[in-house]
Computed example of a mutant assay.
Amino acid sequence: MFKSAVIAVVDDDERMLVSLDSLLRAYGYTVKTYSSALAFLDAGDCEHTDCLISDIQMPGMCGVELYEALAAKNAHIPTLFITGKPGLPPQFSARVRKPEGYFSKPFDTQALLACIERALKRGR
């Protein structure tokens, strides 16, 4: 485990933020939560984030747009996407080159943790 790894979680659902914060902290990660993609970008934490978990569909800037904004800044953070909607949104595969993982809510927490570990091993 990468105990000192910083995981950023971006989701407009407060319950999901609290749930993932608790889960990831229980496994020894440092967690930072953001209620929107813009809040994450405004915080300026890109350089200090080892892995990003982002909801796909959020008001304002969606998770895919966040991914694109980070790529435009040359901030290639390993990214896992989560969604409450069934199926991939239109053009997801064309716009997201290398997602570390894609999970529909509710998701298997062990699969999510394993995916985070793989992403951290690969790094940026």
Results as ranks from 00 to 15, higher is better:
Ala5Tyr: 14
Ala8Val: 12
Ala8His: 10
Val9Met: 13
Val9Pro: 02
Val9Ala: 02
Val10Leu: 12
Val10Pro: 00
Asp11Leu: 14
Asp11His: 06
Asp12Cys: 03
Asp13Thr: 08
Asp13Tyr: 07
Asp13Pro: 09
Asp13Ala: 11
Glu14Lys: 03
Glu14Thr: 13
Arg15Pro: 04
Leu17Pro: 05
Val18Arg: 15
Val18Trp: 13
Val18Thr: 15
Val18Met: 11
Ser19His: 13
Ser19Trp: 14
Ser19Glu: 03
Leu20Ile: 11
Asp21Lys: 07
Asp21Arg: 08
Asp21Tyr: 07
Asp21Glu: 12
Asp21Leu: 09
Asp21Pro: 00
Ser22Arg: 15
Ser22Cys: 06
Leu23Gln: 03
Leu23Trp: 04
Leu24Phe: 15
Ala26Val: 14
Ala26Tyr: 00
Tyr27Glu: 11
Gly28Glu: 12
Gly28Gln: 07
Tyr29Cys: 00
Tyr29Glu: 00
Tyr29Thr: 04
Tyr29Leu: 08
Thr30His: 08
Thr30Gly: 06
Val31Gln: 10
Thr33Met: 06
Thr33Gln: 02
Thr33Glu: 07
Tyr34Asn: 03
Tyr34Leu: 07
Tyr34Cys: 05
Tyr34Gly: 11
Ser36Phe: 00
Ala37Thr: 04
Ala37Lys: 06
Ala37Phe: 00
Ala37Met: 02
Ala37Gln: 06
Ala39Asp: 09
Ala39Gln: 06
Phe40His: 06
Leu41Thr: 05
Leu41Glu: 06
Leu41Tyr: 02
Asp42Ser: 10
Asp42Cys: 10
Ala43Asp: 06
Ala43Thr: 04
Ala43Phe: 01
Ala43Met: 04
Ala43Asn: 08
Gly44Cys: 10
Gly44Gln: 01
Gly44His: 05
Gly44Arg: 08
Asp45His: 08
Asp45Gln: 13
Asp45Thr: 02
Cys46Asp: 11
His48Phe: 14
His48Asn: 11
Thr49Gln: 07
Cys51Gly: 03
Cys51Val: 13
Ile53Glu: 00
Ile53Asn: 02
Ser54Tyr: 10
Ser54Val: 03
Asp55Tyr: 04
Ile56Thr: 12
Gln57Ala: 12
Met58Val: 05
Met58Asn: 13
Pro59Cys: 09
Gly60Trp: 02
Met61Arg: 13
Met61Ala: 15
Met61Asn: 15
Cys62Pro: 11
Val64Ser: 10
Glu65Pro: 08
Leu66Ala: 11
Glu68Lys: 01
Glu68Val: 14
Glu68Ser: 04
Ala69Tyr: 10
Ala71Gln: 13
Ala71His: 07
Ala72Trp: 01
Ala72His: 09
Ala72Phe: 01
Lys73Val: 03
Lys73Pro: 09
Lys73Leu: 14
Asn74Lys: 13
Asn74His: 11
His76Trp: 09
Ile77Leu: 04
Ile77Asn: 12
Pro78Leu: 01
Pro78Lys: 15
Pro78Asp: 15
Pro78Arg: 10
Thr79Ala: 03
Thr79Ile: 05
Ile82Ala: 08
Ile82Gln: 09
Thr83Arg: 08
Thr83Tyr: 07
Gly84Met: 02
Gly84Thr: 01
Gly84Ser: 11
Lys85Ile: 12
Lys85Cys: 14
Lys85Tyr: 15
Pro86Cys: 02
Pro86Lys: 03
Pro86Leu: 04
